[in-house]
């Protein structure tokens, strides 16, 4: 047998997979699996780290907020709007409960029972994430008297529901609970 020259024809794939090729296929597939599994830590390292994911909560004192006033605070590094509605606003919001809306919701579903004057929403426009105006004194509250996002013109009503403009959803209401009559724990 001429064992001398570099005869690689035995390795060409023209003849299709032959029985003794299984070892090469097994070795290559194992190497492929190994290489692919290297991607797992490389990809997952970009996901939020443990300190970011750790449940964090924010306490908000709502006792000092006058009817018609709002405060801005932060929850998970994002703005949070806390607003005390005036009786007129509550009535207006309830009247609109049945109105035609893109993301139908009632005022009651967006507040806690017994505290329906306290509206807590994220201050993040559901369109592309700008902070809507209307929480501070003298800001443009939009056509529906709630919040107005200046980036692309989304109008939210007093209950933070989207009424006009490109935003697809109402301002998000985070999970929260009243730890006392005046203190809210968000998160």
């Amino acid at each position: 047998m001429a064992i001398n020259t570099a005869d690689t024809s035995a390795l060409s794939t023209d003849e299709g997979v032959r029985r003794r090729d299984w070892i090469h296929i097994a070795a290559l597939s194992t190497a492929g699996v190994g290489g692919a599994s290297l991607l797992f830590p490389l990809i997952s390292q970009m996901a939020p780290s443990e300190d970011v994911l750790a449940a964090s909560s924010t306490d908000v004192d709502v006792g000092a907020i006058q009817p018609g006033q709002s405060i801005k605070t932060t929850f998970r590094k994002q703005p949070l709007f806390v607003k005390r509605l005036t009786p007129e606003e509550i009535a207006a919001a309830k009247k609109d409960d049945a109105a035609d809306m893109r993301d139908p919701a009632t005022l009651a579903s967006r507040t806690k029972e017994g505290h329906e004057d306290i509206l807590i929403t994220m201050g993040v426009c559901t369109h592309l994430g700008c902070v809507p105006l209307g929480a501070a004194e003298g800001e443009n509250k939009g056509e529906f008297g709630g919040y107005f996002c200046p980036c692309h013109g989304s109008h939210y009503d007093v209950a933070g529901r989207i009424r006009k403009g490109p935003a697809p959803l109402n301002l998000k209401v985070p999970e929260y609970s009243f730890s006392s009559d005046t203190v809210v724990r968000v998160g």
Binding site: A10, I23, A27, L28, T30, G34
Partner: peptide, 20 residues
């Protein structure tokens, strides 16, 4: 496991070249 496979594959590829 992968290295044993790689070794067998390597040995088989070289089998035709080795002097007896």
């Amino acid at each position: 496991f992968a290295t044993v496979l790689a070794f067998l594959s390597y040995k088989q590829i070289w089998a035709g070249l080795k002097p007896k």
